[in-house]
Each structure stands twice: as structure tokens, then as C-alpha cells.
């Protein structure tokens, strides 16, 4: 039964992703991207990654996409005026994407099974595998340095956004839009 559910979800995700690509109007493609994110969150739950699924929805779909929509509306884009100028670019891009897709798919299908010592599909997982406690324990022990690094990264992002978005001279009220986000 759940395999059917999986295929249904996979189909919806792919459709949403296609929506992101094909829609000329950026607002539509942004909304499709939000849809894709939600679908991915459901996948994460199937994969026992509950914390990440919650994070995905709150942080990613919630904050990042809102920022996107905000900036799109701020710039009130009409959408791509016309199709990308030369169809040749589209064909080349399509070919590149298709070949890469085939390559990656073949490789993954062929060797995926060979994930060394992989837990079988039915393996019983540690209780609370994807839960917050399990993740928190690892995050703050083994990956403490990496965690601090991401905070430095976000600090740089905030500073950068403020520097770039602020008007000159500083006296004038800076743009109200959220140059910087969470």
C-alpha cells in the first residue's frame, strides 16, 4: 500500500518541480517551489527524519520562500517577457539535463544496493531515530564546530545583505524590505 503512496507523492513532487521550471511568471514558480518543499517534507517523514521535516517546513518553506515572494512582489516582475531568446539554448540545456539525469540514474540504480552495510529497508531503527533528541545529541557533540561555523556563515550573510541592500548615504532610511532574514 505505502508503495502506492510513495509513487503518488513522487509524481506530485516531480510535477511541482516541473511547474517551477516551466512557469514564466516567477510568482507561480515560487509557489510551485513551496509545494515541492512540502512534498519533500512528507518524504522526510517517510524516511524517519521527523525533525528535519519540521525544520524544512518552518525554516525553508516558511522563511526562505516568503523572502522570495516578498522580493518578487517588491520588484513586481511581470514574468519573463518572452521565451528565452534562442531556442538553441533551451535544447542544449535540455540535452545537458537529460544526459546528466540518465547518468546519475543509471549510476544510482546500479550501485545503490551496494551501500556498504546499509540497513535493509525493514531494519528496525533505533527508537526515536530521527527525533530531536537523537539529532541534538549528535549535533552538539560531534558537529559542534560545524554548527558554530554555520552561525558565522549566517552572520556574514546578514552583514552582506545589509551592506548591499542599504541605500547610500546611510542617513536616508534604508529599504524597509527584509534585506536580511532569519
Amino acid at each position: 500500500m505505502s508503495e502506492l503512496v510513495f509513487y503518488l507523492l513522487a509524481a506530485i513532487t516531480v510535477l511541482c518541480a516541473l511547474g517551477v521550471i516551466t512557469r514564466p511568471n516567477p510568482v507561480h514558480s515560487a509557489l510551485f517551489l513551496v509545494m515541492t518543499l512540502f512534498m519533500l517534507a512528507v518524504f522526510y517523514i517517510i524516511l524517519e527524519a521527523h525533525l528535519v521535516a519540521a525544520l524544512q517546513i518552518i525554516v525553508y518553506a516558511g522563511a526562505v520562500m516568503v523572502l522570495f515572494l516578498f522580493v518578487i512582489t517588491l520588484l513586481n516582475l511581470k514574468g519573463d517577457p518572452d521565451e528565452p531568446a534562442h531556442p538553441l539554448l533551451r535544447i542544449v540545456a535540455y540535452a545537458v539535463a537529460a544526459t546528466l539525469a540518465a547518468g546519475v540514474a543509471i549510476v544510482l540504480m546500479g550501485d545503490a544496493g551496494v551501500v556498504p552495510g546499509g540497513a535493509g529497508a525493514g531494519a528496525v531503527l533505533a527508537e526515536g531515530f530521527g527525533g530531536t533528541r537523537a539529532l541534538a545529541r549528535i549535533l552538539f557533540t560531534d558537529y559542534l564546530v560545524a554548527f558554530e561555523l554555520t552561525s558565522v556563515l549566517l552572520l556574514v550573510a546578514v552583514v552582506g545583505a545589509v551592506v548591499l541592500a542599504q541605500r547610500e548615504p546611510v542617513a536616508e532610511a534604508p529599504l524597509t524590505e527584509t534585506g536580511e532574514d532569519a
Binding site: 513532487t13 518524504f43 537529460a98 546528466l100 539525469a101 544510482l108 529497508a121
Partner: peptide
């Protein structure tokens, strides 16, 4: 529902993003 299914979805998303 093995690993391959999810990898395929990952690969599809990757190429669409590309």
C-alpha cells in the same frame, strides 16, 4: 520501498534544477 526510489527522486530534482 528501497533506497533507489528516493535516489531517483533526488536525481530528478537535481536535473530539473540544472
Amino acid at each position: 520501498l528501497g533506497l533507489q526510489h528516493f535516489l531517483l527522486v533526488g536525481a530528478a530534482l537535481f536535473c530539473m534544477g540544472l
